[in-house]
Structure formats: structure tokens, C-alpha cells
Write a protein that binds this DNA or RNA. Structure first.
Length: 353
DNA sequence: TTTTCAATATCCTTTACTTCA
DNA sequence: CATGAAGTAAAGGATATTGAA
């Protein structure tokens, strides 16, 4: 049995539920919400289950997979009433829906009203039940009741068909939402990874900063995490590494700037002294000209006096000033794993020896 | 061979939660 | 105890890549 939900005018007929009727138009219009109910028979939407399994590694949400398993095609119209804005409701606080049984519990053949979803899609928000109620519903599905339910949001990807990508979107929404199963409706629960888990992830990150799907699955299984968690951890870890590198780069550029400023200051001072010298000493102009050359390899400046013997010395008008190259070829690198940096550039030292 | 498109992976930004000083 | 900062898990959108039609 398939249940369709129109997000538009509730007074309009649910003709889009028909297999080849307006439903296609709705799907072509962009996105929508569907809710499927099915009796626990052998029929069903195996394709969706299969796809979701492949997409998420298969370990994500057994309940959602179970509920997806069997569907029937008899349409039922449901009114989805807007939930109050109270962010967190306990099951007892949730008002029974018109279709719910009187005691709010699920019974064979009846539709439980305490089932909802929270998923924000664009500006659409539908309700989602706190964990207890969700578990109640899922347990009813898996144990006590043959009634199966499937929720999802389909997003048209533009080809006019509710294809595989749309199903993936559906799964993604439910997958991410499944993290909140143990929490109140609108708040996501943030789980702290244990030290062992973090250490294992760190170890793995040392070996490779990205994971292929196989590695992801293996690691998730080993650490008893969902593949998505492993994936997110690696994303955040890469971001942290990049941030560290940015900080190192920033610090390096800052030092370069300071060095250049200091060098500039010294040169200005030197120029002032030379000007004073020039005015006070007329023989100053007879000093030999000096050309500056730069070593292309290490980018150090060397001066060669045309009148002086053919010796190359490091550029310095003031002999006490050491040559400073604020931009060596190798910029500092953040080594996250205590790696030893490559040996420093030795061009000049080795050339001089 | 080129183009188009869907599927997938990764990156980036932001949010929300936790911990600690 | 309250509070702000720092760290980080997670959400969601943007973008890049890849393979098939």
C-alpha cells in the first residue's frame, strides 16, 4: 500500500498517487514528500532497499531498511497536521493524530499516529518523532505489526523521473536524520568519539588522509561506527590539517614581512649614511661600481665589484649585515605526524666549500 | 569524438554541542 | 554557578570527477 502526501492544497484530490497519472507531474515539479505504508508481505520496493544499502554501506539504519522492504500499492490519503513549534516532545506530549488508534499504540492492521519525521528540505519541515516513539513505531513494524512504513523526500534531479538519484536523496535525508534517533526532534546529538576510536582514526589518517569506500567500511566496522561518521571524521581531520598548514603559512609570511621591513629599514639607514658620506667625502664617487647578481638556485644576492678581484661575495654594503632572503624556495610545512622535514637547502654552503 | 547528465566524492562553511579555564 | 573560548561532530550546499548514454 502506498501513501502519498501532497504538500500543496489539501483540498485537491490525491490523484497524483496514481501510478501513471499526475504523480509524474508532481515528480517533475521538483520535490515532494512521500510516505509509504505497506503490509508485511512479500511484495515491495526491493529496488529502493537495495539502492540504499549500496549507498550507505548497508549498516546505516536497519530499521529504515526493514521498513522499506515491503510495500503494497493501495493508496490511502492522509492529512499531515502541522506540529506545534515545541522543539522537543516526549511521546506522551505528542497529540494523537486523527489516524492513530485511541491509545496511541500500534496495533496490527492499524496505523500508528505517533510517527513523524523531521527533515528540513528547502523551506519544508515535517515532523519527526523523538526516539522513544520512533522506536515504538519501528519495533511495531519489525516485531508486533506487519504494517510497514516508509518515509522519504524525493527531490527531482531534473530528468523528470523519480530515478535512482532521487532515491539516494531520500536515503541521505533519512540517513542523516537517523543520527537523531536517540535525541529530541530538532536537536542533533553530538557523540564524542572514544579515545580508542579517535586514536584508530588518527592512525589510519597517518597512513592515508583519504579513504576509499572499502577502507571506510572496514574502519567503520572495526570501530563500531557508521561509515558516514568515519567519512565526516576524515573530512574534519583534513580540514584541521589544512587549517594548521594555513596557520604555518601565515606565520611564515608574517616573519617574511618582518624581515623585509627590517631589511628595508637598514637599507634606508645605509642610504642616509652614504649620502652623508658623499657630501662630506668628494672621493666617494670614485669608488668602483658594484653589480648585484642573484644566484638562481638559492636566490641569494651576490655583489661583484667590477674593479675588484673576481671574487663573489654576499651582498652587503655593511659588512656586518648578513644577507637575508625572506623567500627561500622551501616554505615551512606543517608536519602533522611528527615527520622530519626535508634537509635544508645547502647550495651556498656546499658551493663555498 | 564530443557532449550531456547522473552519480559520487570531496571540500567548504556553518551550526550546535562539549569541555575547560 | 555562569560564561566565553576552543575543539569538534555533523549538516548542507558547492564543486570536481567519472562513467555511461
Amino acid at each position: 500500500m502506498e501513501l502519498g502526501l501532497s504538500l500543496g492544497d489539501a483540498s485537491k484530490p490525491v490523484g497524483f498517487l496514481t501510478k501513471n497519472g499526475d504523480s509524474e507531474k508532481h515528480k517533475k515539479n521538483g520535490f515532494g514528500f512521500f510516505m509509504e505504508l505497506g503490509l508485511n508481505t512479500n511484495g515491495g520496493n526491493q529496488e529502493i532497499a537495495k539502492k540504499s544499502h549500496e549507498n550507505d554501506g548497508g549498516d546505516d539504519d536497519q530499521t529504515s531498511e526493514d521498513t522499506r522492504a515491503n510495500m503494497e500499492n493501495t493508496p490511502i490519503q492522509l492529512d499531515l497536521l502541522p506540529r506545534s513549534s515545541v522543539p522537543c516532545q516526549t511521546p506522551s506530549q505528542i497529540q494523537p493524530r486523527p489516524w492513530s488508534s485511541d491509545n496511541g499504540s500500534s496495533e496490527n492492521g492499524s496505523i500508528s499516529g505517533n510517527v513523524g519525521l523531521v527533515a528540513v528540505v528547502r523551506d519544508l519541515e515535517v515532523n519527526r518523532l523523538p526516539a522513544a516513539a520512533t522506536e515504538e513505531a519501528s519495533s511495531a513494524n519489525s516485531v508486533g505489526s506487519p504494517l510497514q512504513m516508509n518515509f522519504g523526500i524525493y527531490v527531482n534531479t531534473g530528468n523528470g523521473n523519480l530515478g535512482a538519484n532521487d532515491v539516494v536523496e531520500t536515503e541521505r535525508v533519512s540517513s542523516r536524520a537517523s543520527d537523531d534517533d536517540e535525541n529530541c526532534s530538532n536537536t542533533r546529538k553530538k557523540l564524542r568519539l572514544s579515545k580508542e576510536q579517535a586514536a584508530s582514526l588518527e592512525e589510519s589518517f597517518k597512513e592515508h588522509s583519504t579513504l576509499n569506500p572499502k577502507q571506510k567500511l572496514a574502519l567503520a566496522k572495526q570501530l563500531n561506527l557508521r561509515p558516514r561518521q568515519v567519512e565526516v571524521w576524515f573530512q574534519n581531520r583534513r580540514a584541521r590539517t589544512k587549517l594548521k598548514q594555513t596557520e604555518v603559512d601565515c606565520e611564515y609570511l608574517k616573519r617574511c614581512c618582518e624581515t623585509l621591513t627590517e631589511e628595508n629599514r637598514k637599507l634606508h639607514k645605509e642610504l642616509q649614511e652614504l649620502r652623508v658620506l658623499k657630501t662630506s667625502n668628494p672621493f666617494y664617487t670614485q669608488l668602483p661600481a658594484t653589480t648585484l647578481t642573484m644566484c638562481p638556485s638559492c636566490e641569494r644576492v651576490a655583489s661583484t665589484s667590477t674593479a675588484a678581484p673576481a671574487t663573489t661575495t654576499t651582498a652587503s654594503i655593511d659588512s656586518t649585515t648578513k644577507p637575508i632572503n625572506p623567500f627561500p624556495l622551501t616554505r615551512p610545512r606543517f608536519y602533522p605526524f611528527s615527520q622530519t622535514p626535508p634537509p635544508a637547502h645547502q647550495h651556498h654552503q656546499s658551493a663555498a666549500s
